[in-house]
Amino acid sequence: MSTLNLEVTQRAKRARAARKRATVWHFIGLLVVFLSSVFPFYWMVTTSLKSQADALAYPPKWFFSPTLHHYSAALFEHDVAGSLLNSLIIASSTTVLAILLGAPAAYALARYEFRGKEDLWFWFISNRMVSPVVLAVPFFLIATKLDLVDTHIVLILLYLTFSLPIVVWICTDQFRNIPIELDEAARLDGASPWRVFWRINLPLAMPGIVVSAIFAFIFS
């Protein structure tokens, strides 16, 4: 009996030792992946804080006196701040419009049956297959006719053409995953279709809406 207990104890010790070794190697592997992923960002930030001489030095300088001259030059001398503001206005406006138009459209496609539904769904999806270069010349000609060249609105409308299908695509699948019994129960309680959408479906579909908004903002 004592021999059996000794053998069981030794096996348990070997198992614990093997688990410890696996944990150590697992930690080392995660550390290597983490460092290899973070190092490019570290190098990018530190290079932006170096003077030109330090940035071009060989071998590279790991210790240096940081400077914000490059940031001030980019923001104020080369008008990067104005470009960033324009990008923020265009991307934010496009995202808001895409959500305001796309979420109700996605809800209608997910919940209601109507004539031409499949054709409308295919039209939304096929817009993602069109190369933006194909639409560049027609959009430019239309903008020229309407005197919208070099304005925010023309870029917002252009980006909305490609962002809206993404929002509809993601949100439609999100609304389809919400049990329709919730809508029926709300209607039995006297809720209007708009209230059912606003109070029940919209909060439940918020994860998909947020994801589609992030994609729309990035693409814009």
Score class of each variant (00 low, 15 high):
R176I: 08
L141C: 10
L164D: 08
I156L: 07
E181V: 14
A216E: 08
E181D: 15
Y159G: 09
S192Y: 04
I90G: 10
R187Y: 11
A74C: 06
N86D: 12
K61G: 04
A81N: 08
A103S: 14
V196E: 00
D79A: 12
I180V: 12
N177A: 15
S131F: 05
V210D: 05
K20G: 08
S37N: 06
T161N: 06
L148V: 00
I90C: 10
D173T: 14
E181M: 08
A143D: 05
A136T: 11
L141S: 10
D183R: 09
A74Q: 02
V168P: 00
R11N: 12
M1F: 14
H70W: 15
A18K: 08
H152G: 07
A185P: 08
L88P: 02
Y58R: 11
K13M: 13
R176L: 06
H26W: 02
M129Y: 10
A53W: 04
W121G: 09
S131M: 12
V33T: 03
V24M: 02
A105P: 02
V32F: 01
V8I: 13
A108C: 15
P138T: 01
A186V: 10
N177G: 06
E113N: 12
G116K: 07
R128Y: 03
V154M: 13
S36K: 00
A110G: 14
F41E: 03
D189I: 01
F64H: 06
M1P: 06
T172A: 06
A205F: 05
H78E: 11
F76I: 06
L158N: 09
E118G: 12
N177S: 13
P66W: 10
A81Q: 11
A191M: 03
F162G: 10
L160T: 01
F76H: 07
A136W: 14
A12W: 04
A12E: 12
F64I: 03
I200Y: 08
V154A: 08
F217P: 09
H69G: 01
T67G: 01
I178C: 12
F175K: 00
A91F: 12
T144N: 11
I178E: 05
F215V: 09
T67L: 09
V80H: 04
V196L: 04
F219V: 03
S93C: 15
S92R: 00
Y71H: 07
A91N: 09
Y58I: 14
L85E: 08
P132G: 00
M129R: 11
I214A: 11
L204P: 11
A143K: 09
H70A: 15
T23S: 15
E77P: 03
W25F: 00
N177Y: 03
V168Y: 02
V168L: 03
A213H: 02
E113H: 13
I166E: 07
A53L: 11
S51Q: 07
F124Y: 03
S92W: 07
D54S: 08
M129S: 15
I178K: 05
L148D: 05
R195P: 01
T95L: 07
H69D: 14
I166D: 02
H78S: 13
L182Q: 04
I166G: 02
V211F: 13
R115I: 07
V210E: 05
F219I: 13
Q52D: 14
R176A: 14
W198M: 10
V8Q: 13
H70K: 10
G116E: 05
F124W: 03
G190I: 00
H69P: 02
